[in-house]
Design a protein around this nucleic acid. Structure first.
Lengths: 344, 344
DNA sequence: GATTGGCACTCGACAGCGGTGAGTGCCAAC
DNA sequence: GTTGGCACTCACCGCTGTCGAGTGCCAATC
């Protein structure tokens, strides 16, 4: 039985606790928030909230602290995601507006997000699992050295040098280039890899002798290698100092948390699982995270769109005691702006 | 007046203090290191070392701790940089051996270095200040959209999309490509940028009308932009958790240290100043660092060579109380291996 | 002259102790 | 349903006393 006023009490408990890091008591609630009831009444409400496991008292007779469940209710029902301030908006535009290449945009993005939220920011590199081939290019560098460039529609570019056994004139190289692009362009990267593995065999035997075919195979397999080694599953991080600053919110140490972030794999999995809610962002709170190391951490994330559909995710990570409203707003705004930028 | 035995005492003080983080006293020195003299004698030696400011006592009558000057003497005169263990060597080969592109190699390198040293590892992206143009490529993506790729001999590849006003057939585009490469290849990036700014004007007026010239100018300026925005001055970091683990070695907090690392600019400056010593690595200890935030930190760094001369530096950062021998050995070995890898 | 044992002294670490104050649960009264 | 009163709990703070590792100094010794 949780009354409306009780929910209001939960809200101020969350807000005050996030602001002060101190368990909040009934008296300070009525004093600081102009409730028209007495402290004893609030105590009754708090008892009800505790019954519902929305708050707990760290020790007998101390103020209350929100539980993960309490934060969850707060996030779902009570936090309006207020738009960013004008200054913050401008910061985004100024900070991201002048970048050229994707690496640079993402590096700036992650730093910006860390700055806006005062948390650790994470940006996943555009995933190639959904990305498609836009263009493949072969550039002769020297005899027996050909630069193979793969351009995906997520904007990423991979390159590598192939060292085929023989040589090939410009004309058949152009033919190969045309053929490869005609067949592979538009395919998903994984499909393109499969195609390229077979392609050399299908070259017409009249015009492609043994050597030329070997040459083509070398180039194709270089591209395949790039597809496979692509940085699809990579995260970049900024703002580690912010996490350390909140060290006190973690029992023990933040070391395992930082390690988990640097390991990436756990975070990538988590990013993959998260679903946007009605605000356009996804939030995982404390023990909602499967990983035990993250049981005192919350993650706010959103997908961002590249040249087509969502290509990857970005977000922030911090102690469960974080400013969800602000962080959700910042993550959403940055994701949107980044999408717009990459979509151009 | 520092005797030979006194230096030996300094060595064990450094070693024991690094190992235990506890100020080391005269008694434990004779006990644990088989000195053939009494504790009182060691105390006299310690008084001499203290006179020379090589060690200090944190409080009256507690064990001694090395000063920056003490560490410096240790590093310069007493630490033989012992080769890595076989297992460590193998780790390097396995970890780095299978990478394809430069981004990937460097990402692996920095993680490996963090793992080998248990410190924060830093790798500077190959500097372009000395790098030269290897190849420039223009790839038509769509009408009025041309991908411009710049390949430098440091191995880095920059790309961006130019959006010229008009259109151009393949033939003049090929001519432009040939011309640009003929003139720019081999130049330092900065010289190439200067050249490319002028180049469109020098195109023969007969075959290049107003529009075509504008088109060429758009492509050239895209390349110039890439040169200017190149990631020359970028650091990647790994092992932040290691720094946090050594938090106790920093008075106050590691937060400012982490911030300084993430800011990059101070570190890049520092990297730029460091000179290799006879071991092939450079070491900066505590207050030797100009930046006040790093006055309790030491940096061990080495340059690595790319396709020619030194292109950038890599190293580790940690508390002054670090295992210099091991870290110097690891940095040197990784730098050498990376150089070999990039030189191929 | 270098080395040694002895001795008084210093000082951080740790545990025990009581006072203080914010906060609680409960209850009877409104 | 709300309120004021009351006894109770417990973290926090500062104080105290003990313990032990380590020092500096000095006179005695090799």
């Amino acid at each position: 039985m949780v009354s409306d006023r009780s929910l209001e009490v939960l809200r101020v408990i969350v807000q005050d606790y996030v602001a002060s890091r101190e368990p909040v008591g009934s008296k300070s609630i009525v004093e600081r928030h102009g409730f028209d009831v007495s402290a004893a009444t609030i105590r009754n409400d708090m008892a009800a909230l505790e019954e519902e496991e929305l708050i707990v008292a760290p020790h007998t007779s101390s103020g209350r602290v929100p539980t993960d469940k309490g934060y969850r209710l707060f996030v779902d029902r009570m936090s309006e995601v207020r738009p960013l301030s004008v200054a913050q908006r401008q910061a985004i535009e100024v900070f991201l507006g002048q970048s050229v290449d994707v690496d640079d945009v993402l590096a700036r993005t992650v730093r910006l997000l860390a700055q806006l939220t005062h948390q650790v920011a994470l940006v996943q590199y555009p995933s190639t699992s959904r990305a498609r081939v836009r263009h493949i290019e072969f550039v002769p560098l020297a005899p027996r050295r050909v630069l193979c460039v793969l351009i995906a529609d997520s904007g990423i570019v991979e390159q590598g040098v192939a060292e085929p056994d023989g040589e090939l004139d410009e004309a058949p190289l152009a033919e190969l280039r045309a053929r490869v692009n005609a067949e592979a362009a538009g395919l998903r990267l994984t499909d393109a890899a499969a195609l390229l593995r077979r392609l050399p065999e299908t070259l017409s035997a009249e015009r492609w002798d043994e050597d030329a075919r070997g040459f083509a195979a070398a180039l194709c397999s270089a591209i395949v290698e790039q597809i496979e080694s692509t940085r699809q599953e990579r995260l970049i991080m900024a703002g580690a100092a912010n996490l350390v600053r909140t060290e006190i919110d973690f029992t023990g140490s933040v070391t395992p948390v930082l390690e988990a972030i640097e390991e990436q794999v756990e975070l990538l999995k988590l990013f993959g699982e998260m679903e946007r809610d009605q605000h356009g962002v996804a939030v995982r709170i404390g023990r909602e995270n499967a990983a035990a190391t993250l049981s005192e951490a919350s993650v706010v994330a959103s997908g961002y769109a590249g040249f087509g559909t969502d290509v990857a995710r970005l977000g922030v990570l911090g102690p469960t005691r974080m400013d969800y409203s602000n962080n959700m707003a910042a993550v959403r705004a940055v994701a949107r702006y980044l999408s717009r930028l990459l979509g151009e």
